[in-house]
Amino acid sequence: MPSDVVQDVTWTSDEMMAVAAARELSDGTVCFVGIGLPSTAANLARATHAPHVVLIYESGCIGAKPDRIPPSIGDGVLSVSADAVVGVPEIFAYWLQAGRIDVGFLGAAQVDRWGNINTTVVGNYQSPAVRLPGAGGAPEIAASCDRVIITLRHSARGLVEKIDFITSLGHGDGSGVRERLGLPGRGPQAIITDLGVLRYDDSQHQFLLSEVHPGVGVDDVLAATGWPLLVADSLHETPAPTTSELSALRSFTGA
């Protein structure tokens, strides 16, 4: 993938995160995209190595090809550039629920070692310390897409021992909950952060640290993780962003 690595170019940890997330999408992948980093990463993939990635937004836009990063999931640039625009009941029923989506890209306020996601509350549900926006499309995206990629900034407040509310089910407690519930998708397979990449290990039934971004130490990642994070045998360094990845990303973000 990265062929034109130039080491003297500098980048931010957020840029590394967006690039690492974009690389998860191969050409032709059908991807359900949330707003924020997932949208940036999916559009970066489309602008670089995956020109035929199909972007689906929950506002009903199928095959959107925005020329800038839309500030909302219902931006006019999405509907005008889409192959088709359908109503919201249809996007969730005919397209997501029916199993037509390869990858769901989700953000998280809290995530645990099994990829369960909280975007609902910090603290007690009835009297929360912080009320978050809530579920949106995420519970069914997490259930029905073939695989899920989670992106968030790495901190012990975000990657926690126990999440306060299961908004979207990952792998439950690692004991085969998805299979027992009959969920169609394989669930979260990668957690992409600004420090590295965690991948779900089916034999150890939890996420393992499998990549660290350039300049990041394993100890940095462990210290910023709220559970005793296990390290994969195959641990390696993420290839640095290429100049073409960075220039494409910066053309979107205006950086």
Binding site: F92, A93, Q97, T120, Y125, A135, P139, E140, A143, S144, F165, I166, T167, S168, L169, G172, V177, R178, L181, G182, L183, P184
Partner: peptide
Amino acid sequence: ILRGYAGTDLVEV
């Protein structure tokens, strides 16, 4: 009906 909510705490609240 939908294939949804399964395994989430939304069911509880």
